[in-house]
Design a protein around this nucleic acid. Structure first.
Lengths: 224, 224
DNA sequence: TGTACATCAGTGAACGCGCGTTCACTGATGTAC
DNA sequence: TGTACATCAGTGAACGCGCGTTCACTGATGTAC
């Protein structure tokens, strides 16, 4: 195997370890010793641990959001003016995820887990960073979902969007564990694309589920 | 406000802080100073930080799993022999969650977020602990879901169960943030029970979505 | 009723450890004149 | 072509800090005789 340069080795190793154990639980000493580089190299090349974490995300998300934007351009131009069906929007997202060449030595599922972790365990600085850097792509996507489900009340759509997001993020962040179980219990080798392919009808059906009427109950009992 | 004893004060404060920032990121010094108890009190009463974390979960989950088991007994006795519909199973779970008196000073949503965190960011010891302590209740629930969706292929049901779980866990763990946004954007005050009420039709529809056929594509491109 | 001892919640200060970061340094390569 | 200096990737050792944990101790309450 060709020896990668220090920067790439750090990024690959950090990505893998962060995905395995989280950010706080992974020390620079672990990263640098596994990557076979000097401890001080992280601070030399990235400046700080925080900056390393951001660099790990940027390496994947920068090309991803660029491609996703292009795919959304394409989708819009194919439906010039007409309404774009929800399934087409969802498939644009998943196709982008699946077909994007990985800028990483690690597989897609490692990054998926990382993204899931980031979303759930990210505190202050990370959340802000992701919001600032990639908020606009995310906003564009949600706007498309909104247009594709214009019959839904705004509040209902808001919650369902997050239910969708939850299914995706959670599944992705437990992907490796789930793949192992599926193989053990059902003797089935599941690829990332298969999971995504299963996810679409699930969330799509969820989005067009009947709207519940929320019983107004005794406000004194239970919590607000 | 009546002064609670040291143990309760530690548990309440730890629960809140863990939910806010995660386990590794919350130090015993922060917990004990906010709880206004001595630093050494945690080790005196609980033995270690790990044991404190487990105690936080046990305080909520022990009564919860007991009640949930009772509710499942009741559900089964009401359907003696007949097939129990999926919606009834889901509603049994959510009713238990909503109506259970909180053993905690903090609200339901704090614990929900904690549970979400535990599931996504838990490493070794925590996962093992939850599995050992509450695995059987969870297993009983999934068995009920299986019986209520006997028309689904096993593999498909496996994945959908986790999609469901994802929606629930993710939503619950971001609940406070989402409630704030909903109030800001739609001027709507959402209670935990409302969110749960919205969640049921979503996941229920997802469970009975059409089954996708997974195209077998070129195995050389993309990842395994 | 009084004395001696045991138990227990709680405390203040210190311990050793692993952490992210810093710093002076090396050695290779490039650039100016 | 040769010399002096600049730039840059990388290094080894140390720094200070916050962490979980430990320990000797206090003071209140309970128990035995």
């Amino acid at each position: 195997m060709a020896q990668l340069d220090t920067v790439s080795r750090i990024l690959d190793t950090a990505e893998m370890l962060f995905a395995e154990k989280g950010f706080a639980e992974t020390s620079l000493r672990t990263i640098t010793s596994k990557a076979k580089v000097n401890l001080a190299a992280v601070n030399y090349h990235f400046g700080s641990k925080k900056a390393l974490i951001q660099a790990v995300f940027a390496r994947y998300l920068d090309p991803f959001s660029e491609r996703f934007n292009e795919e959304m351009d394409l989708l819009e131009s194919r439906h010039k003016g007409e309404e774009i069906p929800l399934n087409a929007v969802l498939e644009t997202l998943t196709t982008t995820v699946i077909t994007m060449p990985s800028p990483t030595r690690n597989g897609l599922s490692v990054f998926m887990r990382l993204l899931g972790l980031a979303y759930t365990q990210a505190q202050g600085h990370m959340r802000r960073y992701l919001q600032e850097q990639y908020g606009s792509v995310f906003y564009r996507f949600t706007a498309m979902v909104r247009n594709a489900s214009s019959d839904l009340p705004d509040v209902e759509r808001f919650w369902r969007l997050h239910f969708m997001l939850g299914s995706a993020v959670f599944t992705m962040s437990s992907l490796d564990a789930l793949k192992d179980i599926a193989e053990q219990d059902f003797n089935e080798q599941t690829r990332v694309r298969d999971v995504v392919q299963r996810l679409i009808p699930f969330v799509s059906a969820g989005m067009s589920a009947p709207i519940p009427d929320l019983a107004v109950s005794d406000p004194a009992s239970g919590e607000g």
